[in-house]
Every structure is written in C-alpha cells, then in structure tokens.
C-alpha cells in the first residue's frame, strides 16, 4: 500500500483508504477478480475456467437456458418450505424442552446426539424415502435447519439473568406473566439468531440434496453444465445461487437486528 515515491496524490489516497476500510475491502475484492480475470484469460484452459467479465455477460444466457428459471423457482420453494417447517419444529421443540428443567436435562442430550450425527451420511436414505423430487430436499433441509433453532430457543429460555425473574416475582408476577413478559421477550433475540443459523443449515441441506440428485432443481443444471464443460454458465448459475443465499441470510439477519435492538 505504501508507494515507492510518496507523491502528494499517493498520500491522499493512503489517507482516504485509512479512513474508509470498506473502500479498501472493495479494492481487495476487485483485485481478486482481476487475478481471476487474468488467470482465466491467459493461463487456464477455457474448458475449466471463464473470466469474470464473461460470466457477468452470461447471466442472461443462464437465465434464458430452458428450465433454469423453473429450477431456481423450485429451489427457492424448497428453501422456503424447509425453512418454515424448521422454524416451527425448532420453536415448538425448543419451548417444550427449554421450559421444563426435566425436559431440558433428559431431552437435550438426545437433541445434541442427533445434531452431532453427520447427516450427509444418511442423505441416500432421504432420497430413498422421499424420492428424487422436492420432498427429499425439503426434508433434508429441515433436519439441517431445525437443530440450531431448537438449541437457540432452549438457550434463550434458560439464559435469563436470575435477577430479572426474581425481580418480576417480587413484584407479584404470575407464572403466565413471567412467561409472557420476561421469558418470551428474552427469548426473541436468540430465537432470531437461531433462525439465522437455521437458514444456513437449510441452505446447506437443500443444496446438498440438490447437488446429490436432481431432475428439476438447480442440481440438475449444475451437473449438466459440468458435464458439458461450460464453466461460464456454471459460474453464472453458482453466482445466482450465492446471491440468493446472501439475500436470504441478509433478510433473516436484518430481522434479528430489528428484534434485538434493545440489546446494547
């Protein structure tokens, strides 16, 4: 970053970047893209890698490929349904386990045991039971997404500062009021961070299942593009999916920030 001959403009640029790390970050990203562009243009077989400039102009082509828009819709549908189911299961199980000390002590180790299983090993079973359509992807997404939500809800219900409960009881709060005015609002932020982790899990589960076997979703097209040695379209499709993942993550993250705004 330090120029060999510190010119006036050079120093100004340095000071500007110093004050704006975000701009410097953008510079780093652009540099990486430049390296990629140069590598792809002059050093790597175009059968395997396309330069980003080409990928950028290929987005239209990708979306115009027959079946791709429908595949994206299918994948989005799978993600949305899996996420919704994971949230409902996570919330219900989390509350049931978290609100009772006995439930927590007896069931939580089972939850942790199941969560610890590398689920990828049982993916073939999911396909076997739920078929190669969206059902298996949704099911696999649900089992990946629900555990973090369960654990976050349990933590949110249990990690309340004892003094808040004692204080509420001293003012005469009933059991219902403790639940409604103390436990519930305390749980909300961790529920939302659980949902963020759950979204990560759902994305992982659905995409794993899609990539494993697919006839209509994006998994089908990634394998087609790979087999046809069409890196441009493959990169374009991956970029579109990454963008979709970023948007979904960001959506949940915003919700989390919104509902946790009372935290300092």
């Amino acid at each position: 970053m330090s120029a060999a001959v510190p010119t006036h403009a050079g120093i100004r640029l340095q000071q500007y970047l110093w004050r704006h790390p975000g701009i410097a970050r953008l510079g780093v990203v652009l540099m990486l893209f430049a390296v990629w562009e140069i590598a792809a243009r002059w050093f790597v077989d175009p059968m395997f890698l396309s330069p980003p400039s080409k990928v950028l102009f290929a987005f239209g082509d990708v979306l115009a490929t027959r079946g791709v828009p429908a595949a994206l819709r299918v994948t989005f549908f799978e993600l949305a349904v899996a996420f919704a189911i994971a949230v409902v299961i996570g919330l219900v199980v989390g509350l049931a386990v978290g609100l009772s000390k006995f439930g927590n002590r007896s069931v939580m180790p089972i939850v942790l045991l199941l969560y610890g299983i590398p689920q990828i090993t049982i993916l073939p079973i999911f396909i076997l039971y739920f078929g190669i359509g969206p059902a298996s992807k949704i099911a696999f997404g649900v089992t990946h997404g629900m555990f973090p939500i369960v654990m976050a809800v349990v933590a949110g219900v249990q990690n309340i500062k004892p003094i808040l409960m004692v204080s509420a009881r001293s003012m005469g709060a009933s059991h219902w009021q403790l639940l409604r005015y103390v436990i519930y609002p305390h749980m909300i932020p961790s529920f939302f961070s659980g949902m963020r982790l759950g979204m990560t899990g759902v994305l992982l589960g659905v995409l794993l299942a899609e990539l494993y076997v697919s006839t209509a979703g994006i998994g089908y097209f990634t394998s087609v593009f790979t087999q046809n040695f069409d890196p441009t379209k493959l990169l374009g499709l991956v970029a579109i999916l990454a963008a979709m993942a970023i948007v979904l993550n960001e959506f949940v993250r915003r919700a989390e920030v919104h509902f946790a705004r009372w935290r300092d």
């Binding site: 500062k161 003094i163 004692v166 204080s167 509420a168 003012m171 005469g172 005015y181 305390h186 009372w262």
Partner: peptide
C-alpha cells in the same frame, strides 16, 4: 413475595432490557 407490601431494588438494575 408480597408485592403489595414490599418492593425490591437490587444491586444490578433489574430493569427489563427489552
């Protein structure tokens, strides 16, 4: 607890942060 006769103030603020 006798909320009608006794009110508490604790060392840490026991205000509900939310």
């Amino acid at each position: 607890p006798m909320p009608h006769d006794i009110a508490f103030i604790f060392q840490e603020s026991a205000l509900f942060p939310w």
